[in-house]
Amino acid sequence: MSEASAQKRIEAARFLDALRVQCSVIGALIMRELHTRYGKRGLGYAWLFLEPMLLAVLVVSLKMFSRERHYGAGIGVVPFIVLGYTMFIMFRGIWNRADSALEANLPLMYHRMVTLFDILLSRALLEAAASMTAFAMLIGLCIMLDMADLPARPLYFFTGFLQYFWFSFALSMIVCGATYENSTLQKFVHPISYILLPLSGAFFMVKWFPHNFHGLIAYWPMTSMFEEMRYGWFEAAPDDFFYPAYVITICMVLTLLGLLSIKLVRRKVELK
């Protein structure tokens, strides 16, 4: 075995060890967050997915009184709303909790292996798991009641979901860095999530708008991601209004800005 090959094996072993440590840290942070947020309250861990389920059910029940039961041929109003709202709840949870992530976990920053990136990622994964569980249970009930079908193109749905999670997590890093020691900006975090609800694409399709506006609306990243998730789930959904390459580019830029943001915040914490 050559010296170069041996060096590569050593580097690969070090990388795998570091990856195992990273996964262990994130797993421990998720369990800590679960226990802190849900472990000592009423329904306990079940509230993790019951909360988004109840919110989604309330929204769907209001829409059920409408005479319109389909958003076009093959797209039922109930699965449409379930998909849109449960996915938006994930974004809202990641976004809204980003401004308090550092303050709530400041003692953990004394541990060398724990980083602000780990804290934000563990919180984001927990929100994603809760929303996906709520979605799976509600859409499963819809399928049992013959109100929805199985996903027509599962790969597109999960690709859109992963892009949506990436986008949400990247923004959370920026929010965390921007709002640290800035109480004025913190006050805008929650209102912005309410503003983004009707603009996100969770409750509308691009094709509903006049043709002249299609390009403008579809290039809003959240709309593009929802269009891709709907194309993955509904057989009749169009494939003209989502742009994965564009969304991935946006997510990469936001991730870079987010990493720089939390790096600057980490320096401030270390100075205290």
Rank of each mutant, 00 (worst) to 15 (best):
I119Y: 00
L171N: 13
N182P: 05
F91L: 15
A28C: 04
L138E: 01
L199V: 03
R153Q: 06
M137F: 08
I26C: 06
M225C: 03
L120Q: 06
Y194V: 09
I75M: 04
D99M: 14
Y110P: 06
L141Y: 12
T36H: 09
W166Q: 06
L162T: 08
V189R: 03
F234V: 06
L29D: 00
G44S: 09
E228H: 02
G84Q: 11
S24F: 13
Y110D: 12
F203A: 11
H211M: 15
A104K: 06
V25M: 02
L141P: 11
N105A: 05
S2E: 09
R9V: 04
I139L: 11
V189A: 07
L34P: 01
A4I: 02
R97A: 13
S224Y: 00
H214P: 03
L259I: 11
L48E: 01
S172V: 00
G72E: 06
T184E: 15
R41L: 10
E270G: 14
A124S: 10
L126S: 08
E227C: 03
T36L: 07
K268E: 10
V57L: 12
L16K: 09
A170G: 02
K268F: 03
G93N: 13
A98S: 06
L106Q: 13
V253A: 08
Y71D: 14
T36S: 09
A130W: 01
F226G: 03
L171T: 11
F15L: 14
K187D: 10
